[in-house]
Nucleic acid binder design. Structure first.
Lengths: 187, 187
DNA sequence: GACATTGTGATACTCCTAGTATCTGATATT
DNA sequence: AATATCAGATACTAGGAGTATCACAATGTC
């Protein structure tokens, strides 16, 4: 009762996926479906057999790209841990092509709520993975128990995103840590 | 030696500009040039006579929309002034449709360096207008003289932009002020 | 008033790309 | 052998940006 005809070529799937991810990184969204087919060494029809629309393909590619892993440091102090988390985030934004792609992803989120949702949940998941860092800080008494942790994470990741999207220079992690912990006033 | 034929109708210019700005606010970038012509009550050709490309038109419309004025408070304390500046910024993001349009503007910046430059300089100009607020704070001794003011402004405007772009809830201005001035640690 | 000149609106194109449909051939099962 | 599914190629449709051309309107010059 099963699998009568020719089997799907598994390499076709992976070649298309890799071609799509690669093109997204090197060209943003500005490539045609023929480009994908050509880059994958595959017929145009095969691309549309896997993805009903270009949007579907982009959605999967974006999800893959956002799913890079984050380190969960445990240096013994909030300051040390934060420095690692922030350094990692800064390093990510230095990836060539990422800034342009990120901009276009945000742009697509304007038209397509699914993309917006994808960014939201991906970022949320990313940050929740480092949650334990802040819980340990609360236990050590370095943060008040009622601290708004989403505010803390969004504040620096918003800052980095903003500078990154606009191609503005990013400061050293130390400076960000200092400000997040103690603010701008002298006291 | 001048102006022989029919004079350009000045209302055509303004009608096109208004139609473009209006459509950008209500539909992001997802409208056709025919839509613009129809909304302006004008021939399609007239639109292309003013703007060689849709991109040119969008560029001008965006520049106009970003050029809203900012209040320059003088409440006597940095805390008070900051609260005003931040409240104003938050209010801006509550404008219906702005979040989607902002996303698409950022998205366009990915393809078009001119758009990126436009955002950069517009935001820079916006912030420099409130520069005196921070200078006064330094004079009063509320900020260290070597404070990284761009970091201060980008930190909160990055945060607001980030939450705004992703349609995440924005906190009360007081909370942001508190964190910017004193950080997350207890003292 | 005749005429040239320029702006306006309408319409018919071209070009590009996403998405669809179809055809031929290859590879598998029964 | 017969049949079913997959791959590649190609021709189509649809929609929107940008171009070209037309007739008409309004203003100037003679």
């Amino acid at each position: 009762m099963s699998a009568r005809g020719r089997k799907p070529d598994p390499t076709v799937d992976t070649r298309i996926r890799q071609a799509a991810s690669g093109l997204v990184l090197t060209h943003g969204f500005d490539f045609t479906m023929d480009d994908v087919a050509a880059a994958a060494g595959v017929g145009r029809a095969s691309v549309f057999r896997r993805y009903a629309t270009k949007r579907d393909m982009l959605l999967e590619a974006i999800a893959g790209l956002m799913n890079t892993h984050v380190a969960i440091p445990d240096t013994g102090s909030l300051e040390g841990d934060l420095r690692v988390v922030i350094s990692d985030t800064l390093a990510l934004w230095r990836m060539p092509g990422l800034s342009r792609t990120a901009r276009q992803v945000y742009g697509e989120a304007g038209r397509d709520p699914a993309v917006a949702e994808l960014i939201r949940t991906s970022m949320r998941t990313r940050m929740e993975r480092s949650w334990v860092v802040y819980e340990r800080a609360i236990e050590r008494g370095e943060l008040p128990p009622n601290a708004d942790l989403w505010m803390l994470t969004d504040l620096f990741s918003g800052f980095v995103t903003y500078r990154g999207l606009l191609d503005l220079p990013l400061p050293e992690p130390e400076e960000i840590v200092q400000v997040l912990l103690h603010g701008f006033t002298l006291s």
